[in-house]
Design a protein around this nucleic acid. Structure first.
Lengths: 135, 135
DNA sequence: CTTGACCCTCCAGCGACTGGAACCTCTATC
DNA sequence: GATAGAGGTTCCAGTCGCTGGAGGGTCAAG
């Protein structure tokens, strides 16, 4: 298979696949003409990577997961540890975004959004205090 | 004020303040010795930027907000538009993270996490199907 | 005079790609 | 055999918002 086929089948852009080869996640062989020659196992790995990335795992996490995937003598505890760590990081990110969201939504709701210059959003950013309707 | 004072007062690292000067967000003057000489208004701007960044606004958003902040004849609608756009982007990010979180939490809960190799997390990543307890 | 804290500039790197230039290869058609 | 177009290749630069470090200058205290 050429890179275009693998790209279509895995859903990953060709650029990304070349990048994954660069950083050693896959090692496709080469045809006589210099084209990358992907085996089924390469496609399988790339699809694995695509799904892991879609779950937000970092490339380094993916490298670890892939190694465990290939390792018949792995302990599922190792996999679970990586996944749980990632879950915690996701939770932290969600909490942080929700906190931003709350502040921002409050400010937005207080802003008239008309042609006058008075704006509680800017007042808050400028002073670090709540100048809103309720503040 | 030297950069260290402004850094302490604004909470921004000195490196970040230099970077903000680089990209034209602040224009501190210079002392005879070449040190940056910050006025109160510069400090004020930097504090504004720090708070806007803490709410997740991009640097370009911050540039726009700062310009509006300085513009006495602004319309609050312009500010509100930027804030609302940002709010929507935050909402999208939260939704995406929550979707990841749900999948991941399910997989984690199905993984024994012991010394055996069987692992629904890897099976899912490998096959793109649900191999969990309930799947 | 030396120490240490502060300041300066410039360059490189992070993560995970993405875009583009400049070029090569294959297949189909005329 | 020429040509067009769709594929492939490499390499370099850019994204975003900093951050680290090298290698140096400045200033106040002891």
């Amino acid at each position: 298979m050429n890179i275009g086929d693998v790209s279509r089948l895995s859903g990953l852009p060709a650029k990304t696949i070349r990048y994954y080869e660069d950083i050693g996640l896959v090692q496709p062989q080469r045809s006589a003409n210099g084209y990358r020659a992907f085996r089924d196992s390469d496609l399988h790995k790339l699809a694995f990577l695509g799904r892991a990335r879609a779950l937000g795992f970092s490339i380094e996490d993916c490298r670890g997961l892939l190694a465990l995937y290939e390792d018949e003598s792995r302990e599922s505890a190792s996999v679970k540890r990586i996944a749980e760590d990632h879950l915690h990081r996701i939770d932290e990110k969600i909490a942080q975004l929700q906190s931003m969201r709350a502040t921002l939504a409050h400010l937005v709701s207080c802003c008239a959004g008309d042609d006058r210059p008075d704006c509680p959003i800017l007042e808050d950013l400028g002073a670090g205090e709540d100048h809103c309707c309720k503040g």
